[in-house]
Every structure is written in C-alpha cells, then in structure tokens.
Computed example of a mutant assay.
Amino acid sequence: MNKYFAIIAWAYMVFPLPGNTQTPNIDSLLQVYAYQPDDITRFSTLTHLINAFMYRDPERSMAFALQNLALAREIGSEKRESMANFHIGVLFNNQDQYDSAKIYFNQTYQLAMVTGDSSSLLLAINGLAVTNLNMGNFAAADSLNDISIEIYSQRNDNYLLAIAYTMKSQINQKQGNFNIAYNYALKGLRLMKEFDKPVRTADILLQIAVIEQELGNISNAIEHSKEALQIYRAHGDLKYQAQLLGNLGDLFIIQGNYNEALDLLQESAAKADSAGNPSNKAGALNRLGNLYMLRNQYNQARKMLDEGLEISSQIGDLPGKVKILNSLGLFYNETNNPQQAIQNLNQAIRISEQLNLRQDKSKAYLERSLSHENMGMHQLALSDFKTHKELSDSIFASEK
C-alpha cells in the first residue's frame, strides 16, 4: 500500500463548528470576514476559513492561518497564538513538510505550558504524534497517542477518542499488525457513529479499507473505499480523494482490471498535485510504475518510479521511499539487471530495518533472493529467502 497517510484533520477539533454540517457556508464566511475589523473579532471567522479551505485550497488556508498568527501576536494573546501555531503545523504536515510542522507544534506546546491551556497542550501532543507517524517514528507516535487515549478516556470524550483509536490503528497497520489495527479502527468507527461527522467517518472507512486490502479482503476494501470516496468528493477534500483513488487503483490491479486502474491512478496523481500533497503523488506514481510493468510498458514504468523516488527522497518520506525502492528492485529484475536491483533493495532493507517496516523488509528480501538467483548466487538467494520466510511467519504469528 502507499503512504497512508496523514489521515486525521486536527483543525476540526479546535473550534467545533455550529449546526450539523462540517463547515459553515464558505461564501457567508468570506462576507463576514470582508466586513469585520482587523481585531480580536476576526479570530473565530479566520479559524473557520482555515478549516474550510484546508483541503480545498491549502495555500489560501495558509494565508488565513498566517494572518491569524500575526493578529494573535499583535494583540498579545498567547492562547490564540498557540492555536494559530497549531493550525500552521497542521498545514505544513499536510504538505509533507514535517520538520516545519514540528517547529509549529512545539511552539503550540510551549505556549500552552505558559498559559496552562490543557486543550492546546493536548492538540500539540496530537500534532507531534501524527508528524512522528508520518516520519516513520512509530514508537514515539504510539507513546504520544497513548497519552491522548488516556486523557480522552478519562474525559469520556468519545469523538476525540475515536480519532485517537484510528491513529492507533494506523501505527499498527504500518508495522504489519493488521488484526490489531483492524480492531482499533472498528472501535473508532463505533464511537464515531455517535456523531454527525461524515468526513471523520470517511477517514476511518479509509483506514479499514487499507487493512482489508492487506488482509486480502478485496471486495470489502473496494466497498469501504467507494463509500469513503463519495463522502470526500461531496466535501471537496482533494487530499484524501487522491489517496483513495490510489487505493482503488491498487484494488482494480489486483482484480486484473488494468484499464480502470490506470484511469484511477492518473486521477490520483492529478488530485495530489491539486492538493499540493507530494507523498500521495509519489504513491500514485509508484502504483503507476507497477501497473506499467504488468502491461510490459517498461519505459513508462521506469519514468514513473524514478519520479516517485525523487519526490519521496526530497520530502523525507522514508516509508514511501521503501515501497518505491522495492518496486525498482522488481523493475530491474524483470529487465535483467539484477545488480541494479540489489542496489535498490539494499537501501529498502536498511530503511525498513530502521523503521521496523516488517512487511516491506520481507518483500525486499524476497525480491533480492530472486536477484541473487538470477546471478547464480544460490547460497545468497537461499539465505535471503529464509529471511523473507522468517519475517513473513513472524508477521503471521503476531496476527493470530
């Protein structure tokens, strides 16, 4: 699977929006904003505008967030400055700029400690947890998220607890603990059904679909993906449309429907571009590369994989990079260049060991065993295959 993802949109946690809809009418918000003085009365409107444009037009959302930060500093409100930093951190995270995101989440945390604002403090912890997850720092992400789970449980805050359970699911899914991940996602979905929050429900359906695919339940994965995609389209959420279109492309490849898969993956890459989300684009390019290999279009495959690798390297998306390196290993094996395959697979193994990506590491050892076999190095091939089998068996055992 491709990079998952930042799935949780924390900005919706900060100021609950009125009524039963996810966001107020954007035109109405803009009219109110146009006539408000540039003072404290604008904070609420700016916050709603940040949320409203976060996945529709990230650049515009960032402009409102920076204005919110400047206004908070101008009037000397550390509490509002803390929240403004948080919003900017979310936007940087959504653009895969994780180092920048961490800077603003740390600012949120430090200001919350000064003001004693427990809500801002918890948001900072959530932000740092999600950023660590996206960077592949799973132990740190899990520890931070467990703090959130404990606090939300004590407060009986089922809405935020549902989101924290979904993140717990993501952390386990990335490490190959699929049954554990599935159970946490179901717990999150049951809690979220208490609320009229269709986009947050779609986030959990997306996570369940990812796990269903990993478990080989393709029909269920398609069903959940289509349900979530319909919600994201209705709310103009480009980032997660891109991710779901990529997931669906994968599922149709498994079913052998290459033409429909091609259309979906090309749309996924285009949506990721529109959303300004390079990790989703790299994931779509990786899938396109694999699809072109299945169609024996190796020049196109190489072009897609090289572009995807460049993007994932530039943004520091190590989990996504591992998947593309494994795909390049397959590409070079299929084009009779096992030495080049081994170079890519060696990198994949190093990174997957560093991040504890057991499934990706297992795939890399399997593909490298084929490289060694093609070179007549039968002992090395056997050794790699045994390591692959041990990893595969350990993943299976942990899922019982």
Rank of each mutant, 00 (worst) to 15 (best):
P278Y: 05
T23F: 03
L264Q: 09
K271Y: 13
N126P: 07
F396C: 05
T201P: 03
Y4I: 08
G289C: 05
L305Q: 03
D250C: 08
I204R: 02
R368M: 07
K168M: 04
P319R: 06
N277A: 13
Y182F: 10
Q67I: 03
I7N: 04
A202V: 03
Q241D: 02
D96I: 01
A269M: 11
L191M: 09
G89E: 01
H48M: 04
A185R: 03
I103V: 13
L186A: 07
I311A: 00
T166R: 00
G76N: 08
A129W: 03
F5C: 10
G316K: 11
Q97L: 14
Y55G: 03
L215F: 10
M13A: 14
L161N: 09
I351S: 13
I254C: 07
M192N: 09
D142A: 08
Q359I: 05
P16A: 11
I163V: 08
L251T: 10
H87Y: 14
N247L: 05
D96V: 03
A228N: 04
Y292Q: 11
Y98Q: 06
Q22M: 10
S148W: 01
Q339H: 12
N299C: 02
A101S: 14
H372V: 00
N134V: 01
A381Q: 09
N257D: 14
N326I: 05
G283H: 09
Y4V: 06
R190W: 12
L133A: 10
H48A: 05
F385T: 07
N280C: 07
M293I: 08
V130D: 11
A129C: 06
D250N: 14
E194F: 08
A112G: 09
S398G: 13
A70Q: 15
L251N: 13
N158G: 04
A209H: 07
A301R: 11
S312W: 03
I324C: 04
L121H: 14
L238K: 15
Q230C: 06
R302D: 06
N137H: 15
Q173K: 10
Q339M: 05
F178A: 01
K168F: 00
Q266H: 13
N220Q: 15
Q107F: 15
Y332D: 01
L357R: 11
N336G: 00
I218C: 04
S169L: 09
T166E: 00
D96N: 13
N172F: 02
Q314M: 04
F252M: 15
L305P: 01
S219R: 15
Y184I: 03
S119W: 15
T201G: 10
G127S: 12
H378W: 13
N336A: 05
S362A: 13
K389W: 09
L248Q: 07
S371H: 08
Q255V: 07
F385L: 12
M62P: 00
N257F: 01
N177L: 02
Y240A: 05
K187G: 03
Y35E: 15
L122E: 09
L71S: 07
G89Q: 07
D306P: 03
A129D: 02
N179C: 00
H235P: 06
M1P: 08
K168R: 15
A275D: 08
P18A: 05
Y104V: 02
Q213W: 12
L191E: 10
Q314P: 00
F252P: 14
H372E: 02
V90Y: 11
Q340S: 06
L71A: 11
M62C: 01
Y33H: 14
A52C: 06
I149G: 10
K79N: 10
Q213Y: 13
G289D: 01
N106D: 12
M167K: 12
P338M: 01
L191S: 11
E212F: 04
Y165C: 05
